[in-house]
Structures are given as C-alpha cells and as structure tokens.
Design a protein around this nucleic acid. Structure first.
Length: 850
DNA sequence: GGTCGCTCAATTTTT
DNA sequence: TTGAGCGACC
C-alpha cells in the first residue's frame, strides 16, 4: 500500500474535525488498514460496514467502540453493542478490554437476547410478567405445547408439537404477537395455529415464563406501547453497534430501529453474502435495505482480505457472483497465490472419507507443496450433520484424532437439563416444569398415574405441583412404595429450598453452629470413653460405630454451615447427591454414562463463577457453552453453518452433490432464494480456508441406508477454471469410475437404474470436465472389492509389487493397490487388525467368509 | 412401571 | 441406517 492511496481513502472518508482528532496518537488506529480506518472514523449517523469474509470486521467494530470511548463521544454505558452469540460478545469484550486496558463498565454489550432480558426484567409488568420470570428453552417449550395440544384433543401424531413450536417461533421472529398474526396464516397447524399461539402465550404468562422468542418480542411490544420507556432507552443509547447485521430477523430489526430513532447513531456490520440463517427468520433484506431504512447512511466496504490466498478468494468470488441482489464487494488480498483450489470426484462417500483421511495424514507429515500442518489447522465442513458419520467411521478406523464441533449444546444435554431442573426446584419450589421433569428421575416409582394424581390435587388446591404432592401425601392419597419415595423427594426439595432461602441467615448459621458444638462435644466424650475401654471389651465396637456416625454428622453439619454461609457449589453437589441423580448415572452401564457424569462435574465447576444458584440459573440458559478445551491435536468436523466466523489453513468441503449441496429441501421449499442461500453457504465454506481448500463429491452416497447416485453440485460448474486444480481420481479408479465401481459391486439397488442414473452423472458438465482432464491410468481389474478388516496375525506373507500388494492369509490372498493404504487399527478387544480395501481373485472369492 | 419391539421419519441451529 | 416415540406386555 502506498502512503498516498492510504491518505486519500482516509481523507475521503473522514471529516476535518475528526481528522484533527485522529491526528493525535491513537494506538487503536495504528494497525488498521485504510478501509478499516475509514469505517472506524465514519461520522456519526447511520453507518453500514460491509465487511467481506476475513476482512477484519470485528477488529474494525471494536476499534470503533474504542474510538467512541477515547474521543469522549460516549461513556461506556451509553454504547449498545449487540451480537448474536455469546462467543461473539465475549470476543468483542475481550478485544475492547485489551485495547483499553480494562473491560469494566460496558453493561450494554451482549447478545440480543441477554440485553433483552436485562431490559425485560425492568419492565416485565408491562407485559404481564414478574421480573423474576424464567426463560424456557426449546425443550420446555415443546413440553408445554404438548400439554396444550393434548388438552385440546388434537392428534399429536398428525400435528406434532415440534411443528407448532417452529410455527410460533417463526411468528415471533417476524414480531407477530397472537393478535398480529395475519389472516394469511390462519390455515397454519390445521387452522388452529393462531388460537394455540394465544393459549400458549397465556400459559407462559401464568407460569411467569418466556421463551427465547418472547425475550425480543416483549421488548419490542413494550417499546411500541410505552413511548416513555422507549424514550428513556433511546436517550440512554447514544451509539448502537450491531454485529452480523445480515442475520437479523424482523423482530431484531424493529428492536434496533426503535432504539436508533433518536440519535440515529447506528453502526451495522455485516456481509450480505454470508447470510445463511434465512431458515430461522434472518432477513437478508434488512441489510440490503439499510440505506433506505436509514437515509444518509454512510456505507463503508471492507474488502481487503487477510485470510485466504488469491486462488481461494477467486473461487469464492466466482461462486457468489452467481447470486442476484447482492450489495457487491470485490475481495482482494496481498497474499501470495499459493495452491489452487482442488477439486476431486470419488466413486462413493466412503471412498471420499478414505481419501480425505489419507490427505489429512499426508498434510500432517508435510508434502512437497505444503509444510507439515497440525491437525488443529484442518477442518472438514459438511452441509448436513449426517455426512459426519462417514468421516467419524473412517477416522476411528485409522486412529486419526478428530473433534466434532457443534453437537448438542452443553446445556441442552439430558443430564445438564435434569440437574438444572433440580436447581430450579431448589430456588423456586413452585417451578412446575422443573418438578415434572425430575419428580421421577431417577425412577421413584412415580408413573403416569401418580403424577396425574399430583397434578389433579395441585390444580384443585391451586398450589404448585410440589405443594400438590405434599397435600397428597398428607391425605394418604398415594400408596405403596411410591409414597415413601415421594415423601423423601418432597422433604429433600424443602431442605434444598431452605438452604437457598436462608443463605447468609445468621440465626440459622448460629443454630447449626450450636449443633456442631454439641456434636463435637459428643465425639470427644465418645473418644474418651473409648480410651477407657479394654482392648477386648465388647462395647468397643459399638462405641467405634458411634464415633463414625458422629463424625459423619459433624461433616454434614459443617457442610450445611458452609452452604448457609453461601457456598452454593456445595449445595449443588448435595442436591445431585441427595436426589440420587449422580448415583443413577453411576449405576448406568451404558457407554455414555461416564461422559454424562463428567458433564455434571463440569456443570458444578461452572457454578463457581456465579454468586449463587439464582444468578447461575438466570444466566445459564443464555450463556452456558460447550467449551472443554482439549489439548490434543485434532482435525475438526463441523457443518458449514457452525464454521461461520472460523478459519483454518486447510479446509475440506466434501459432498458437493446436487440435492445434498445445494440441499434439495432448501431448493424445494424456497426455490431460487433457497439456492442463493445455499450458494452463500458455499461462499462461507470456501472462504474459511487460508491456504488449501479441497472440494470433493461422490457419484454414489449412502443416505439413510439407501444408495443414491448424484450429480456433482451445480456450484462446481461455477468455480473458475483458472483457479482450480482438478485432481486425478485416486489410485485404483483412475478415469474409470463407472466400470470399476459396477464391477466392484458397489451401488446396490437395481443395476439398471443405478447405471442409468450414473450415466446421467457422467454427462453432467462438472463430471465431464473432471474426467476429460483426468488422464486415464492403467487400472487393475477387480472382481470383488470391499473394505474389510483382517486379523494381522492371520497374514502369512506380504509383498508389494509395482503398486499392487499381495497379502497371503488363511483364506486366500488380499490384493490391494498402492494408495489404498494399509491401516493398522485396533478392534474393541484390542486386537491388531489390518484394514484394507482389497481385491480378491475370482476363484478365491467363495472361500472368503465375509 | 420398565422393557421390548415396532413404526416412522430423516437440513442447517442460536438464544 | 439410526433414532425417537409409542404401545403392548411382563
């Protein structure tokens, strides 16, 4: 960059007064490029930072915040900075903190949801809630809906609660309260959607609860119906900054627009090309319309990419260029050309996983073109999570360490939710949803009948379920073993709540301290007694036992005091212990049980960061994340969606087949709009790569146990030839996929159909181009080829002869081709196995027992 | 109340 | 193929 163009851009973007200000030393501006600087110094009023992938948008955004603070334009509490994820919020906080040397005092930096909660707690009564409302997650939401559906005598099979939940969510995303749902939606959910939505909202209000969608919607409602409240926040937030603006939905858009009306100092950062959440309500339109919504908006483009090589950028740009209705950006980089994007086709998905596994190992060792890479630098990005299985299978076989990113969120896991329900019950005994969840977990012999009795009793008496249970016990309305267990449960709940309610209560602590004193006296007395007893005295044993019991009591008493004194971590442990929940998992012999216990430990550990249980519960549904940092090097497997915002030197993009990617469903449901969103996903995928990006596809893939053949993705035809290297298909199948595959016995199903479908595939432009360029290589003629596992000990001789290996074993000869790697793996019993795709001579095929 | 076996469905996911 | 959910049975 020459100094001239830098200052030109600077002067064009920045008015004199600010230039004067910026002329003073401002360290946060030092390592910004001219584009970023222009964005940071853009004048007050609406600003749109159009930031392409890898252009340092977070850097620019945080620098603007720092700029606002250091130039005295706003105090920390006058800046509202919103993100979508906690991770993004945290990163922003970290960065601002690093630049300013302190993190304090930015109370309004967080996610849309966390900020909404903050606002809503202050004004809950305006929407009929109390300020201590609970936040239900998806699971609770669905259980609640199920109850409504059952109560309404609706066939839950034909009209699943999940469907209704999705519907209500989408309405909330569009900021439609029940009254505002347009009549065009009247037919939804068997004509009863709107009605059930209203009932659901009533029920939530009765439970003093909200779901995620409500957090935003209630705030919007309050702003719309209480101008005084709105005005207060408008005055408060002098500057508003929004990350990932392209992902905002209508509710979030309204939320922002209402708040921004007064000062109009709203700075949105986003990339219309990376809008990939349309299916959950995100409106690309919001960012496309920005200049109309905020007249006089200052638009700054960040186009210098620091992440990827020119080849990778060119490939991504070419693909995304096929989309219409973009704001348009031209990414550029100063990096060296590097490797071209690689494109390779495979016979089937297993072959693909195999090849990628080999590539990963090669890259780990280092190749001619690339220095050795850590597995941490490599990622496999798939369209749909079921694609992950092929890779997991393969990597387990060859012992390649991997991590799957974006499984179920930590707090969504069964055991975590159960534990949380226990905590909720301790904090608020009237939490009926929590009660329902854990009353029979672990099993307490309280089945449907017993639970229904409790429900009925509670409703009749107008008390909580816990209260209902208590009454039922008092009246003897429940019999058998269930009764005793229920009594224990109720007593435990009372005890837990006692500790929560009397936290820091001096009188109670004193009471326990007195008790402790008595117990200690008792123990001293017993010890003295023991000393007086003869070695062989028969009474000795019973005294010893009493000492042990007394010791245990002292321990418990000390613990109780610690809990009363405010040690909520201990309380949590005690709850899990006393309820039998930990024991339940300890007794569980299924393979996932140890992991669940591990998670429970993590949960308890996470508690330490909070003041008390309430504080924890208040935030946990919004904050908790699954972040156990393992040290070991691992290749990452994740969906394209989960990869947004991440970057890796080496990226593999498998499964580029029409129907899978772009996804058929997306195309069916949303037509051209769907394809465009899929294309943005392709763009996101390619731009994750820093140095090496490999796209692959397979002619056949097993989906839900069925073999399907596919066409290469239409996006492959959009890749620019000059920046793509088409790899020769590997080893055995060089240039002759169809024939080899057929002979090899892959494909299943009807041979004729299979062949016809495959023939189509080979006529597609993508495939043709690939095969045209790929020089055919002499090929072994396999009669039988499969993946299999052979006992290593069974191999009696092994020879490698011009790319072909022969391994003799008990049943015949295993023949493999170089490139079809021999892998040593261990089976469950720890026996060494040889894993190979092998080829058997025809005459021996019958002798082989697999 | 717990377990077994049948049927049915099956993108993407944050808060 | 896998998994969840449900009904029948012990």
């Amino acid at each position: 960059m020459s100094g001239d163009s830098e200052s030109d851009a600077f002067e064009a973007a920045v008015p004199l007064s600010q230039r004067a200000m910026a002329a003073r030393p401002a360290p946060y501006l030092d390592d910004l490029n001219p584009e970023q600087r222009a964005a940071v110094l853009a004048p007050d009023g609406p600003v749109l930072m159009l930031a392409g992938a890898g252009t340092g948008k977070t850097k620019a955004l945080t620098a603007r915040i720092v700029h606002l603070l250091t130039t005295g334009k706003a105090r920390p509490n006058e800046i509202l900075a919103v993100t979508f994820t906690n991770k993004a919020a945290r990163e922003m906080k970290d960065r601002v903190g690093r630049m300013l040397g302190q993190v304090e005092g930015m109370p309004w930096m967080g996610t849309f949801h966390s900020i909404s909660v903050k606002i809503l707690r202050r004004h809950a009564e305006l929407v009929g809630l109390k300020s201590n409302f609970t936040i239900l997650d998806t699971d609770d939401q669905i259980r609640l809906l199920k109850q409504l559906i059952v109560a309404e005598n609706i066939d839950e099979k034909r009209w699943p609660a999940r469907l209704l939940a999705g519907l209500i969510d989408s309405w909330k995303n569009r900021a439609w309260t029940p009254a505002k749902v347009p009549s065009s939606e009247a037919s939804a959910y068997n004509n009863r959607g709107t009605e059930l939505y209203q009932m659901y909202q009533d029920r939530l209000r009765a439970l003093n609860a909200t779901d995620f969608g409500d957090l935003l919607l209630h705030v919007v409602t309050i702003f719309q119906t209480h101008p005084d409240v709105l005005a207060q926040y408008q005055r408060w937030f002098r500057y508003i900054l929004v990350d990932e603006y392209q992902d905002t939905n209508v509710a979030q858009y309204l939320w922002l627009r209402l708040l921004a009306q007064a000062h109009r100092n709203i700075c949105c950062v986003g990339d219309d090309d990376q809008s990939i959440y349309g299916w959950r309500g995100a409106e690309v339109g919001n960012i496309l319309r920005f200049e109309k919504d905020f007249p006089g908006a200052h638009v700054v483009r960040l186009e210098q990419n620091y992440r990827s090589t020119p080849h990778i950028l060119a490939a991504a740009s070419a693909v995304i260029a096929a989309n219409k209705g973009r704001l348009g950006k031209t990414l550029w980089t100063e990096r060296e050309a590097g490797e071209k994007v690689r494109l390779i086709g495979h016979w089937d998905g297993e072959e693909e996983a195999r090849w990628i596994g080999d590539e990963l190992e090669a890259l780990q060792r280092g190749t001619r073109a690339m220095d050795p890479h850590s597995l941490d630098d490599m990622a496999i990005l798939v369209r749909a999570s079921h694609q992950m299985r092929a890779f997991e299978d393969r990597f387990l076989t060859i012992g390649l360490p991997y991590r799957v990113i974006g499984g179920p969120r930590f707090y969504e896991r069964l055991e975590i939710r159960d534990a949380m329900a226990y905590f909720r019950l301790a904090v608020s005994p009237a939490d009926d949803l929590a009660f329902e969840r854990v009353v029979n977990t672990p099993k307490r012999g309280l089945g449907d009948t017993a639970q229904q009795n409790i429900q009925r009793r509670a409703r009749a008496a107008g008390v909580s379920l816990l209260g209902g249970a208590r009454e039922l016990l008092a009246q003897g309305g429940i019999g058998g073993k269930g009764a005793n267990q229920l009594r224990t449960f109720v007593t435990s709940c009372d005890a837990w709540h006692y500790f929560v309610a009397n936290r820091g209560n001096e009188l109670e602590i004193k009471r326990y301290a007195d008790q402790l004193f008595v117990l200690r006296e008792e123990r001293s007395r017993l010890l003295r007694e023991l000393e007086l007893l003869d070695e062989n005295d028969e009474a000795r044993e019973s005294v010893e036992r009493e000492i042990v019991i007394c010791g245990a009591r002292i321990g418990r008493c000390e613990r109780d005091i610690a809990i009363l004194d405010g040690n909520h971590v201990l309380l949590a442990e005690q709850i899990l212990e006393e309820s039998g929940y930990t024991a339940m998992w300890q007794a569980d012999k299924t393979p996932e049980a140890p992991g669940r216990l591990e998670n429970l430990k993590e949960l308890v550990k996470a508690l330490e960061q909070f003041e008390n249980l309430q504080g924890f519960l208040e935030h946990v549904s919004l904050i908790m994340e699954n972040e156990s940092e393992e040290a070991a090097e691992k290749v990452s497997i994740m969906t394209l969606h989960a990869a947004k915002g991440l970057e890796f030197p080496v990226v593999f993009l498998p499964g580029w087949e029409d129907g899978l990617f772009p996804s058929q469903r997306s195309m069916d449901e949303s037509g051209l709009k769907g394809v465009e969103e899929e294309r943005r996903l392709a763009y996101v995928g390619i731009t994750r790569a820093e140095a090496l990006c490999t796209i692959s596809f397979a002619a056949n893939r097993r989906v839900y146990g069925q073999w399907q053949s596919a066409l290469p993705s239409r996006f492959i035809d959009e890749l620019p030839e000059a920046h793509v290297e088409v790899l020769t298909p590997p080893g055995l199948y060089g240039g002759g996929y169809g024939a080899a595959g057929m002979q090899a016995g892959f494909g299943g199903g009807s041979g004729i159909e299979q062949r016809a479908a495959s023939a189509d595939a080979y006529n597609s432009p993508g495939w043709k181009r690939m095969t045209e360029r790929a020089p055919t290589r002499p090929m072994a003629q396999p009669r039988e080829a499969r993946n299999s596992v052979i006992d290593l000990d069974a191999i009696s001789s092994f020879t490698l002869d011009d790319r072909v290996f022969h391994a003799k074993f008990g049943y015949g000869t295993v023949v493999g081709i170089e490139g079809d790697k021999l892998d040593v793996a261990f089976d469950k019993a720890g026996v060494k196995k040889l894993v190979a795709r092998f080829v058997l001579p025809a005459h021996q095929a019958d002798d082989v027992p697999f």
